[in-house]
Simulated scan of single mutants.
Amino acid sequence: MTVKAPPAGRRARRPAGGPPAVRRAALPALVGGLTVALVLSMVAAVGLGPVSIPVGDVAQVIGRRYLPGLVDTAPTGPQSVIILDIRLPRVLLGAAVGAGLAAVGTVLQAVLRNPLADPYLIGASSGASLGAVLVIIVGLTPFGTFSLPVAAFIGAMAAFLLVMLLAGGQGLLAPTRLILAGVAVAAFTEAVTQYLVLTSPDKEVRSAMFWMLGGLGGTRWSDIGVPMAVVTAGALWFWTQSGRLNALVLGEEGATSLGLEVDRLRRRLIVGCALVIGVVVAVSGGIGFVALMVPHAVRLVVGGDNRRVLPLAALTGGLLLVWVDVGARMLNRPDEIPIGVITAVLGAPFFLFLLRRAGHRRWQ
């Protein structure tokens, strides 16, 4: 079933957000431009770090590995190892994590009709943190080197299921109940996590805190396959539901009048968000503000139609996190800054800007 984008109420005469020329621009052109920017940024980001590598050398090394018929010569030795084995998987994971966070934030804000909605509101992020901290501090390694991401994913799913159980009163999944249940579960899991951190030896505390604030250090090729596949599949599926997301913004009565089974659709979308965020947080830790900031920034430029916002937000989120990760490894060399610290520094002023801009207007 295809649902047309709903009218914007009193503002229907002038679509909300962004210059008219940008709103009218063809979606393929916008997606293509952001894709090119993302690819170029990833190549540049691979060359940046405590040891800088010229962009030309990066392109040659990657080209020789993956396009051997087109590139015959490239640097070898330590530079090749840094590019292919250390930085390239890290940059690819950063792009996938950013895209996943932004896509989930877009969907949750529409489903819950709440401009502040992000992964913490469904309990997934805080549950993942608890699962990972248990592995770091207690030393449980039932899955070997994969114990931390597996534990984080299990924690995310367990917290999310508890939120769904608490919110599903009388068989319905009301947004208000879901938000309240998510806040309660997040507060409980964060309290347990903080207790574990405060009562642990210094070495484990540092590792746990760094993971809780998010980071991509130590990424291996084996870490990126599942997140990239899940984020790609999730973003594509969310986009197929973008017409229905537009209808959900109208509210229960408006969406029902268009023939939607609102509660069933809401459950499916939230489960999809939980799966994506569980996988993403399991490999990157708790990175805040991306899911909140990027969808709003995209809406300011292209308007509120989720058929445009979703793909553009995913690409913008990937682009943002690639450069945030560059800052994380460059600003305090040779040590790294947790990515969550940088996103908070960027996100808090942006959030205040949104509040000032919105005034007393309703979010759309």
Results as ranks from 00 to 15, higher is better:
Phe188Pro: 04
Val150Asn: 08
Leu34Lys: 01
Gly272Lys: 05
Ala191Asp: 06
Gly127Thr: 08
Leu346Thr: 00
Asp85Trp: 12
Ser222Asn: 12
Asn332Tyr: 10
Val326Leu: 00
Met164Ala: 13
Gly251His: 07
Ala26Lys: 08
Ile136Arg: 04
Ala229Gly: 13
Ser52Tyr: 08
Gln109Met: 05
Leu196His: 02
Gly94Phe: 00
Val302Gly: 03
Thr141Gln: 15
Ala233Pro: 06
Ser129Asn: 14
Asp118His: 00
Ala59Cys: 06
Trp239Asn: 09
Pro295Phe: 00
Gly139Asp: 09
Val276Pro: 08
Gly32Val: 05
Gly278Arg: 02
Ala358Met: 11
Val301Ala: 15
Arg113Glu: 05
Ala21Gln: 12
Pro20Met: 04
Val341Thr: 03
Ala297Asp: 04
Ala247Ile: 07
Arg90Leu: 00
Val301His: 13
Thr2Gly: 14
Trp237Cys: 03
Leu67Lys: 09
Phe153Leu: 15
Arg299Glu: 01
Val36Asp: 05
Leu331Gln: 02
Val192Gly: 06
Leu198Arg: 15
Ser207Ile: 10
Gly327Lys: 07
Ser147Trp: 06
Leu275Ser: 05
His360Val: 15
Leu236Thr: 03
Val183Ile: 14
Val276Cys: 11
Gly47Tyr: 08
Gln194Arg: 13
Leu331Pro: 08
Leu269Arg: 02
Pro50Ile: 11
Ala59Tyr: 07
Val183Met: 12
Gly303Ser: 01
Val135Ile: 13
Val294His: 01
Ile339Val: 15
Val341Gln: 00
Thr189His: 11
Gly139Asn: 08
Leu355Cys: 03
Phe143Tyr: 08
Ile86Cys: 00
Pro201Thr: 09
Val150His: 12
Met42Ser: 07
Gly215Trp: 01
Leu70Pro: 10
Arg264His: 10
Gly182Val: 05
Ile277Ser: 08
Leu172Gln: 15
Phe350Pro: 07
Glu252Ser: 09
Ala103Tyr: 00
Gly144Cys: 10
Val3Asn: 05
Leu258Ser: 14
Gly286Phe: 01
Gly32Trp: 05
Pro149Trp: 07
Val294Gln: 03
Phe188Leu: 14
Ala59His: 07
Tyr66His: 10
Gln241Asp: 05
Leu258Trp: 10
Ala191Phe: 10
Val322Arg: 00
Ala344Glu: 04
Val231Pro: 04
Tyr120Thr: 13
Pro75Ser: 02
Ala95Arg: 00
Val150Ile: 14
Gly303Val: 07
Trp221Ala: 08
Val22Ser: 06
Phe238Ile: 07
Met330Ile: 12
Ala132Ile: 11
Ala26Glu: 10
Pro50Gln: 13
Ala191Asn: 06
Leu196Gly: 08
Phe143His: 13
Thr199Phe: 14
Val309Cys: 09
Val324Glu: 00
Gly168Glu: 12
Arg357Gln: 11
Val55Thr: 15
Pro75Phe: 02
Leu265Val: 14
Arg90Asn: 01
Leu162Ile: 12
Gly171Arg: 09
Pro15Val: 02
Leu245Cys: 03
Arg64Pro: 07
Pro50Asp: 14
Pro54Met: 09
Asp305His: 06
Met1Ser: 14
Trp211Pro: 11
Pro142Trp: 10
Leu292Asp: 05
Thr141Gly: 11
Gly278Met: 01
